[in-house]
């Protein structure tokens, strides 16, 4: 029994269909629970008032925006090294989810920034990095869309993802160097004395767990769709070949 068994599309579909219903339910409960807990059952922050509560959407979305790219990077590496089709399709399936997460992080950030910093947008390093990340997602998705042959598309997008990751990290440092920024430091970290207070942190953890599971569910579901689309293409091609 090895993890590579799930590289078989059939096995993958079979297993993902079994776990998906419970994933949907658990992630919905966690996200809704976390949001309701955070919005209605935590006190207002003494400086930021109730605007701080957008953190329950903003931070989990930002978390997933970055981790979706990491997941794509990992899946691309697996495709390049082991050439499992499911892996390439999972990377393809994750990209639109990632770009939406990036968009949510950017928009909620703007809504939060307006009352706090008095502006919707500032060229702060974190904001700028997310904008650059958004552009990377855009290019990646556009490349998938532009190429007919699925294996060629998988190869090219994988290498773009690898090269893009290096340049994304470079951009992160460049942007940091370029502008020191307004954004507050990390709200959660293990080695810092001044973290978000526990009352805010627990609903936030709940939302983050919910977003992670929601992301996994979406990617599994979308990968299933991609597998079926790919299979359909293969069946149509078979028709053509047997006619010819």
């Amino acid at each position: 029994m090895s993890i590579w068994e799930y590289a078989n599309p059939k096995k993958f579909l079979h297993t993902s269909e079994r776990v998906l219903p419970s994933l949907w339910v658990v992630s919905a409960v966690l996200i809704l629970g976390g949001l309701i807990w955070g919005f209605f059952f935590t006190p207002d922050d003494y400086r930021q008032g109730s605007t701080v509560k957008i953190i329950y959407l903003h931070v989990p979305a930002a978390l997933m925006a970055i981790n979706a790219w990491f997941m794509m990077l990992l899946a691309s590496l697996i495709w390049v090294i082991r050439r499992h089709h499911v892996s390439a399709l999972a990377a393809k399936a994750a990209a639109p989810v990632g770009i939406i997460m990036t968009l949510i992080a950017l928009i909620t950030g703007a809504i939060w920034g307006q009352p706090m910093w008095g502006t919707w947008w500032a060229w702060d390093p974190r904001l700028t990095s997310f904008l650059v990340l958004f552009l990377f997602y855009l290019g990646y998705i556009a490349l998938w869309e532009a190429i007919d042959n699925p294996d060629t598309a998988a190869d090219l997008t994988s290498i773009l993802c690898l090269v893009g990751s290096v340049f994304a990290v470079l951009s992160r440092y460049a942007v940091n160097f370029w502008n020191q920024g307004l954004h507050q430091g990390a709200s959660l970290s293990l080695d810092k004395e001044e973290n978000v207070a526990d009352v805010f942190a627990f609903p936030l953890y709940t939302c983050m767990a919910g977003f992670i599971l929601f992301f996994i569910a979406l990617v599994l579901y979308r990968t299933g769709t991609e597998i079926r689309a790919r299979r359909m293409k293969a069946l149509i091609a078979r028709e053509r070949m047997s006619d010819a």
């Binding site: 078989n8 599309p9 059939k10 096995k11 089709h85 597998i227 790919r230 299979r231 293969a234 069946l235 091609a237 078979r238 070949m241 047997s242």
Partner: peptide, 13 residues
Amino acid sequence: KLPALDADDGGFL
């Protein structure tokens, strides 16, 4: 010839 529909990669061709 056309490969079997259920080859080891699940009919991916």
